[in-house]
């Protein structure tokens, strides 16, 4: 199982039956593949609907996901305009948002929308999602391709939102903010505490209950 699938599989365990969830583009879209039996979630698509599903058969006109790609819709889907969509997001009606990160820090700050002078695509819906969702899970690889830390004492890149992250899932570890303190709660199979320490710049606590991730047989 590669890093992305492991992360998606671990985040899927956080989702409860009935949750309303917004998934960012890329890695987070793998998460529905790993939901436990009996866990049914409703996906919110910020371009204007609840009930996003996989594309089945030929694309329908005017049915695209937040990446502009053809998608499906499940029975019970509701469409709405962008003000309603973001009222749902900002107003705390989304239980969980899962999105990627360039940097996260020990204060719960997230930077994932621009690299000054290099990448300025715009924030899209990310700032509203991170501000308004009840739980913000950052799903990302633990380090950059160059091996630099991404979980920092303080983000260097422009923030998406300040102090809103509730958990971080990587291929090495699962962290939660517990009482405002970044806390290591799980390690990936075969990964030592020392390795995580060496690859993480942030200060963090290690939960007394810290354990190895329990991944289903098909996924590990």
């Amino acid at each position: 199982m590669d890093a992305k699938d492991l992360i998606a599989c671990r985040v899927a365990q956080e989702l409860k039956d009935g949750d309303v969830v917004n998934l960012g583009i890329g890695l987070p879209t793998l998460i529905p593949n790993y939901l436990s039996e009996g866990v049914h979630i409703t996906l919110q698509s910020e371009n204007g609907f609840l009930g996003l599903g996989p594309l089945v058969g030929d694309p329908l006109p005017d049915l695209v996901n937040a990446g502009g790609k053809p998608c499906g819709m499940l029975p019970g889907t509701a469409f709405f305009d962008s003000a309603m969509s973001f009222a749902i997001i900002r107003g705390g009606h989304v239980d969980v948002t899962v999105l990627g990160g360039l940097q996260v820090d020990q204060l719960g700050n997230l930077a994932n929308w621009m690299v000054p002078g290099k990448m300025v695509p715009g924030m899209g819906g990310a700032m509203d999602l991170v501000t308004g969702a009840r739980n913000v899970i950052v799903a990302m690889e633990h380090n950059t391709k160059e091996g630099d830390a991404k979980i920092l004492k303080q983000c260097e890149l422009p923030l998406t939102a300040a102090g809103k992250v509730t958990a971080i899932a990587t291929e090495l570890a699962y962290f939660r903010f517990i009482g405002g303190v970044l806390t290591l709660v799980e390690t990936a199979p075969g990964v030592s505490l020392d390795e995580i320490r060496a690859k993480t710049e942030a200060d963090y606590a290690v939960s007394p209950d810290c354990r190895e991730m329990r991944l289903p047989a098909k996924a590990s």
């Binding site: 204007g48 005017d62 049915l63 305009d81 962008s82």
Partner: peptide, 12 residues
């Protein structure tokens, strides 16, 4: 009347 995800910013 709008259709599916084509509504977005139009009504606003």
């Amino acid at each position: 009347v709008y259709r599916r995800a084509a509504r977005n910013f139009n009504p606003l």
